[in-house]
Design a binder for these strands. Sequence first.
DNA 1: TAAGTGTTGTTATAAAAAAAACAACAGGGA
DNA 2: TCCCTGTTGTTTTTTTTATAACAACACTTA
Lengths: 259, 259
Amino acid sequence: MSQNSEDISAIREYLKSLGLTKYEALVYIALLRVDGPSAATEIHEISGVPRASVYPVLDRLAQKNLVNISNTTPKQFRATPPDEGITSLMKGIEKDAELSKEALNKIYQKKTETGRGNQELIWSISGMENILNKLSDLTSDIESDLRALCNWQFFGPYIADTLEEKKIKAVIITNSPDNSVFQTYEGMEILIPEHPPEPIGKGDISGVFIIDSKRVLVIMGTTDLTPTALYSESPGFVRFFNSYWEFIQTHLGVHHRQE
Amino acid sequence: MSQNSEDISAIREYLKSLGLTKYEALVYIALLRVDGPSAATEIHEISGVPRASVYPVLDRLAQKNLVNISNTTPKQFRATPPDEGITSLMKGIEKDAELSKEALNKIYQKKTETGRGNQELIWSISGMENILNKLSDLTSDIESDLRALCNWQFFGPYIADTLEEKKIKAVIITNSPDNSVFQTYEGMEILIPEHPPEPIGKGDISGVFIIDSKRVLVIMGTTDLTPTALYSESPGFVRFFNSYWEFIQTHLGVHHRQE
DNA sequence: TAAGTGTTGTTATAAAAAAAACAACAGGGA
DNA sequence: TCCCTGTTGTTTTTTTTATAACAACACTTA
């Protein structure tokens, strides 16, 4: 067995997300490593979990359908295969997700019609995943047009994919990663300035997305730090980035234009 | 607001499955209840979470994409709509589930071919969900035939649905819930004894499933207790329930036969 | 057959970690 | 000056981990 402790730590983190304690994860991993069913003492030896603690841990794993028990003397324990076990765990979690969604929507929907509120605020979003989720939400609600300034590498293919079906008019100012061909659709225009503004030119995870001329998402990040984004419908904010975008379009010289 | 503390406790349990602490759940629920964005002090008042604790909680919720922050003075906080927020949470969990499945399968697969092991052991399965999962696994792996003795109400439609496509020969001894028509398929035979054995006759959650004449699942439960099942490939176990089943078939008199 | 030893399963207790709860301080704005 | 906001530190509570102890059972040996 070439299993090392780094791998086991990583697996433990994944299983922690699925609701397993450290001991539960260690015991389940140990059972998956052995050939056939095992007794508690053997599990203790392989997993490093104290022998007396192994018993309640195995009971909890059985409740979670990750272990089967044969009531022999000594008891024998067998791991549920990962595909079956993890699927079983996920079923329970998905059910709770569904129930919480319903219950929370009941609370939230009472407010939806009344609170249009606060176009004036600027919202921070942090973490690449959260940012991409927001971009996804915005593009799914898009009505008429998109103007963007961004790295093609990080955002280009996604935008082309997403907006092609809707026939949304899009103008993208972007860098040229190399002389490769851009995937576009009719109605999508690509502008490549001779001297792209610095974050774009440097290949950072940056972008300005102006949706329907009234909503703006600005992504500010570098390839080595956690990116942050700002989102707002505030007219001042929109105006600022509108003019920023227009400035880039008109003053930095367009080196290449592709439709 | 007619929200009571029972509802909030239930929602908290669901959200706990999704990895939220008590305070995180309370704050998110509070934010969903208010009209538009709120300041930290207002959240404290509505949620009952101590004011000083609200800040780190809100930071963590923002990391989880459940809250957006506007860095005004005082800061304003807004809840992500439940659909979007829960979906976002689930994405992370599903990713961890997938990663753990892959990593665990790597460990487990090294053992699959070598360990045929322990047809002799009898495995206990407890909880209706876990039992149904096992039945599902067994029926998806079925090769030639099924004999069963069970309540039609609990198991009949499932079996008919599942095995119809495979054209598996099945013989089911069951009770007659009333004079309703059984859903069957060609190759599935229904036997209804005049005096069904007691658990079956009483309508308990009981059943004997003999799969391919070499694997047996026995479900023992009543409608008011948590059911337990036994599963084994042990020849002795299989022989016992084979003969039990044959005895029922030949001695209790068949009152009705339907193909 | 009885005694001794080792194993198994269970429960209780102690220690550590995480979450909840509370206290206090500094800075900013009215 | 007072109040609010944001932050940090400390204490308490809860949960998990780690350890200790006991009873019962099984096996071996004299």
